[in-house]
Design a binder for these strands. Structure first.
Lengths: 338, 338
DNA sequence: CTGAAAGCGCTTACAG
DNA sequence: CTGAAAGCGCTTACAG
């Protein structure tokens, strides 16, 4: 099938390519009559502009890049959802890349997106990301950039986050309020900011309520997943028989713990209370249903793209853009595990 | 920051753009000395070819499109995973679009991908897709196309599927083998092929084992999700008190049913046995753990891209390509709900 | 209101 | 082995 080009239309109509181009884009200096003629012909031939040529001329790809640690993850899936929806509204396509929590891969992905000349990049950092030189490069090249959820405080760019410390504080306080005296924490890896912040919120809540912080009650869940939760729970049962509450960094880890307790006849919440984090929809499906903190993934996606869009718009007009940090609300959700 | 172009390098070195271009691409008719010089300079200036120009010249975008009903879905997440991984290996980027199970949106997405000139398209149909004229157009334009999982039999293109009918048969037979006499089916919408096939597998299994098919035992779960499972289970309890087995079209629907039974003190599997479909990892985390059919999402993604790649390669060389249909193995997984 | 011309940055057939 | 030239399909400043 032969491609339809401006030239084609111009020849059919016996006018110049210039005029055809202008007519299709509704330039004010083309007569109404010509416009109608051109548009009609374009429709008839099913003309579609060749984006490759348009990109080259306009220096824009109308495509944005998204780098996340993992696609197969309820929270990120929701974020993707929000981003794609907004992007489509504005006529942007989203290229999604997965870092698999690897620093090396993440760097490669950034390079890939840059070489594809995306108009902007959104990123949530891998757990293993140790420095941000690759992001500094994005800034140098003046490619708009927004970080979300897993951010680096060192990077000067727009950010969409939740207040992890506060949310963790509230979650821990909820355990205390429901009578827990010995509260363990399943935390994430040591590097990620949100893992640190949730840990600090947990610690602060204990201290503010006269409970001595005991580091032996903190277990590291490297991948914050179901398996990790199972393992941490098993170890906890070996180490401590007096723990009556757990604040887990993710619902997944919490659910892992619950499954261990269910199996061993340990009653939740009578013997031990459990708090998750994320409000994955499965949390309400398990038995007992899981108390957790609602983390607004979809909203985060929406806000992330919107902020990126603003920056891209400013960039296009060569205007200055002042990076912004937006903090989204979280919400404690009480169910049957506490 | 000034963009580095071939021209830049050529000027710095006092040679022609042509030679620079050829040297960088290791054309055999450029001297070794020139090549080294050019490559050195390119590296020094951090030269990156302008993909927009390359695309325009080569008529390739090195980008493929993926349309799926939903991102936030364990099965599709795994497929995405497999696709992205393979694509990256071959230097392709993946644009992911979501149809939200809408026919209209799906058509729009196809148009979008075509207008972006992706080198190939992978698609899993929306539940509400009623005809395939939009896919026929893809074929007309000679854009390589692979369908996976939710396919249309009417479309002449490559397909990656599982044998839904057989898998459903095996699942139902498993219920029969464990003693069930009155087996209900929570099926999907009426249109999708895999919803039809799973239903037919269920029916055939009953008939082959001397159980009369009773259409009042078949409930439609329009979105095959958790909510649907809850509703269907509630209705089932109202309608029939003699059912002792359920084959649900998805794990999600099955888990919804289990949560209803758990709540009402109906014992699974003692009072009623339940089979899911998909082998979502949560199935092993709930109580009781769910028997199900393992559906190889990741593998499906890998195979899908590989097949698309073959077709794109043939297309590039203007060779004929014979569409293929690949059927992947499923596996019955017995857990505690049967 | 219309159009000739330059140019985006690359690739490649062709001549020397 | 090197390079001038054409061309991919579009946009837009400029002239008439």
């Amino acid at each position: 099938m032969k491609e339809v080009t401006l030239k084609q239309i111009a020849e059919n109509l016996g006018i110049s390519i210039t005029t055809v181009s202008k007519a299709l884009k509704d330039y004010p200096d083309v007569s109404k009559k010509t416009k109608t003629l051109v548009k009609q012909e374009a429709k008839k031939l099913r003309y579609k502009p060749n984006v490759f040529a348009v990109n080259l001329r306009t220096r824009e790809s109308k495509t944005v890049g998204l780098i996340i640690p993992e696609v197969v993850h309820h929270f990120f899936s929701s974020v993707i959802n929000g981003i794609i929806e907004q992007a489509e509204k504005k006529g942007y396509l989203v290229i999604i890349l997965q870092s698999n929590e690897s620093y090396k891969l993440e760097k490669k992905q950034v390079d890939l997106l840059i070489s594809k000349r995306v108009d902007g990049i959104m990123i949530s950092l891998a757990n293993k990301t140790v420095d941000i030189s690759h992001l500094k490069r994005v800034k140098e090249l003046e490619v708009p950039l927004v970080m979300f959820d897993k951010i680096s405080k060192l990077m000067d760019c727009s950010k969409i986050i939740i207040n992890d410390r506060e949310a963790a504080y509230t979650a821990t306080k909820h355990l205390i309020d429901s009578g827990c005296k010995r509260i363990a924490h399943f935390r994430g890896a040591l590097l990620p900011q949100n893992s640190i912040d949730r840990f600090l919120g947990y610690k602060k809540a204990l201290e503010d309520h006269g409970i001595t912080y005991d580091s032996s009650l903190v277990y590291i869940c490297e991948n914050v997943d179901y398996e990790d939760g199972i393992n941490a729970a098993k170890k906890l049962l070996e180490d401590h028989d007096d723990v009556d509450g757990i604040f887990a960094i993710t619902d997944l880890a919490a659910i892992g713990a619950i499954s261990v307790f269910n199996e061993r006849g340990i009653r939740v919440p009578d013997d031990i209370s459990i708090m998750g984090f994320s409000n994955w929809f499965v949390s309400s499906a398990i038995t007992p249903s899981l108390s957790t903190v609602d983390q607004p993934g979809y909203e985060m996606g929406v806000k992330t793209f919107k902020l990126l869009y603003k920056e891209m718009k400013a960039r296009r007009k060569n205007k200055e853009f002042e990076p912004k940090t937006v903090e989204l609300e979280t919400r404690l959700i009480k169910r049957n595990s506490t």
